[in-house]
């Protein structure tokens, strides 16, 4: 090729076009995070130290991690199970219009999070909320004080509000990836529906399911505004603890915040890594 000799030089000058973006990422993302990492391993005098990590092994911080992991895990698993079932029901709807409408609803609601969502749940499930009253007047069920929207049980309901539609959006393409020929071949070879799902359908969906669960987990783990609006300081979650160290609550040591942030990043990193692997597996089968 005549221009092959020009290639390397052209490539170098082309890379120059990416530099402004790289600099921006370095300045406002990479460098701050790396400095945070370094900071988490230094004491107040600036020497290498594991003291910050020792601080977060005290009960309150351990409990906040445990709470965050539990809340994220429960909402991820419930979201995945019900998202799978509802997603399949939506996928099988005979009317494309209805299907599109439900997908649009999921698209919108998965982004409804934070303060407005938390407040909406207070409106319906607060101590004098509509649903609370309806349960009491029509079903004779008193939700309070067993249940409270301001507690972890309430938080699970509120989180599921954005977790469910997210799972639906993630799993429907996976259903679409199940080729009709697989079902027909299995049927033709003598398999019934159960045998098809157990041996072919579910195994093929598994990578997408795993990808969905870890994404939902990460989604819940990093969430802050919903929990803060609902529970405030009554709820001990990692993100809320980290925020306290920023807003300068006296009880909270900035060093502990740095260490917690690093452990959170590690957890999120593991999630993203699993997600990438599961996703590439799902795609390999989709070809």
């Amino acid at each position: 090729m005549s221009f092959s000799s020009r290639r390397p030089r052209q490539n170098l000058s082309a890379w120059a076009g990416v530099v402004p973006f790289l600099v921006f990422c370095l300045v406002f993302e990479i460098v701050p995070v790396v400095l945070l990492l370094l900071g988490s391993f230094t004491d107040k005098a600036g020497a290498f130290s594991l003291s910050n990590y020792q601080k977060i092994s005290t009960p309150i911080y351990v409990r906040s991690f445990w709470n965050s992991i539990q809340l994220s895990g429960i909402t991820a698993i419930l979201g995945a199970i019900f998202g799978l079932l509802i997603g399949y029901a939506i996928f099988n709807l005979p009317s494309p219009r209805l299907r599109e409408a439900l997908l649009a609803l999921s698209d919108v609601t998965t982004n409804f999070a934070g303060a407005p969502l938390a407040f909406a749940f207070i409106v319906i499930l607060g101590s004098s909320g509509v649903v609370t009253l309806a349960f009491e007047q029509y079903l004779g069920l008193k939700l309070y004080p067993t249940f409270s929207i301001y507690s972890y049980s309430g938080l699970i309901l509120a989180y599921l509000y954005f977790q469910l539609p997210l799972m639906i959006l993630l799993i429907i393409p996976a259903f679409a990836g199940l080729r009709r020929e697989w079902w027909e071949s299995a049927h033709n070879l003598g398999a019934n529906s159960w045998q098809y799902w157990r041996r072919i359908g579910l195994p093929i969906l598994t990578p997408s399911l795993i990808a969905g669960v870890v994404l939902l987990f990460a989604n819940a783990f990093g969430a802050y505004a919903t929990a803060w609006t609902l529970g405030g300081s009554n709820i001990t979650l990692v993100t809320i603890q980290i925020a306290f160290t920023v807003t300068g609550e006296v009880l909270h040591d900035p060093g502990a915040g740095d260490a917690m942030a690093m452990v959170s990043l590690l957890i999120m990193g593991v999630c993203i890594a699993i997600y990438q692997v599961a996703n590439s597996r799902a795609r390999r089968w989709a070809k």
């Binding site: 995070v33 783990f221 980290i242 990193g269």
Partner: peptide, 9 residues
């Protein structure tokens, strides 16, 4: 992968 609180911090 970076929670907003961590980015803010």
């Amino acid at each position: 992968g970076i929670p907003a609180v961590v980015l803010a911090l």
